[in-house]
């Protein structure tokens, strides 16, 4: 019983982490049609924000507040200077964001040095769930993910801004004809997605290595989540995260973890043959 409860919680927390880290990626892709290869670097910047706070002797919680704001602002800057010119050339955005990812990584190296960074833990200890001990911080990650997802959904479906974005997605020229400043919605959409990436990095910072290359692994994971779940829908991210998180937690019981991971991605490709738009498509 203990194994079942703990492993279920592990699956849920892994799914939350995956959803949190790939939400921004999916938002940018779904809304703007941009494959953002620099998303991993935005994630990395979020983690560096927390580490910087720790280094300055401030509470790492400040990092959690600063990360989305700073990274969101950086995202908007990237959108204004580079992405905006490339919306009609989706493949080129991919190459340009690859360039951006290199630039961010190298600039971080120049500023912080090439070594590892660390941050003080945000929360220690464990909480009793269904009679079993589980790390408080992981429960916190699950909670944050639920809140972030709800907030994103609220923003997308219940606010005027969300309405504008949905209109821009379904018919850009019509939206413009109706007097919507599409360039502004694009910028904000990119900024919000970047802020999500930064927040994810900040939240994950106590659990992962902090160095300039840390974003790459999460980028690859994020893409797998996006293809399994289906592209362009927010539900897709949740479904993809749940399938991969749950699947990995369940299969790694039985198989070598590497094999489990390979099987999941290959399954995703087979699923595409049957359901070309992903599970939710």
């Amino acid at each position: 019983m203990e194994a079942l409860v703990i492993q279920t919680l592990n699956g849920v927390s892994l799914a939350s982490i995956l959803i949190l880290t790939s939400l921004g990626l999916a938002v940018i892709f779904g809304m703007l049609g941009v494959v953002n290869l620099a998303h991993g670097e935005l994630f990395m910047l979020g983690a560096y924000a927390v580490a910087t706070m720790s280094k300055l002797g401030l509470s790492p919680w400040w990092g959690l507040l600063v990360a989305p704001i700073v990274v969101g602002a950086i995202g908007m800057l990237i959108e204004r200077t580079i992405i905006r010119r490339l919306y009609h050339r989706p493949i080129d955005t991919l190459l340009a964001t690859w360039g951006v990812s290199i630039v961010i990584r190298q600039v971080v190296r120049l500023i912080y040095g090439t070594g590892h960074m660390s941050s003080t833990s945000l929360m220690v200890g464990s909480t009793t769930v269904f009679g079993y001990e589980y790390p408080t911080y992981r429960l916190f990650v699950i909670l944050v993910t639920v809140l972030v997802v709800l907030l994103t959904f609220f923003l997308y479906f219940k606010t005027t801004f969300g309405l504008k974005i949905r209109l821009v997605i379904s018919n850009r020229s019509m939206a413009r004809a109706l007097g919507i400043n599409t360039s502004k919605t694009d910028m904000w959409a990119f900024g919000i997605a970047s802020a999500l990436g930064g927040l994810a990095g900040a939240i994950m910072s106590p659990l992962v290595t902090i160095d300039p290359e840390m974003g790459l692994a999460f980028l690859a994971k994020g893409f797998i989540v996006v293809i399994v779940g289906g592209i362009g829908s927010l539900y897709g991210v949740i479904a993809g995260g749940a399938v991969i998180g749950g699947g990995e937690a369940a299969i790694s019981f039985l198989l070598r973890p590497v094999v489990a991971q390979i099987i999941i991605v290959l399954l995703a490709v087979v699923i595409i043959r049957v359901r070309p738009k992903g599970i939710t498509g």
Binding site: Q7, N10, I17, A220, K221, Q261
Partner: peptide
């Protein structure tokens, strides 16, 4: 046990 290179979540291993 042996894990993949990009293992980022260790909860199952730790359990």
């Amino acid at each position: 046990e042996f894990v993949p290179f990009d293992q980022s979540d260790w909860s199952s291993v730790i359990r």
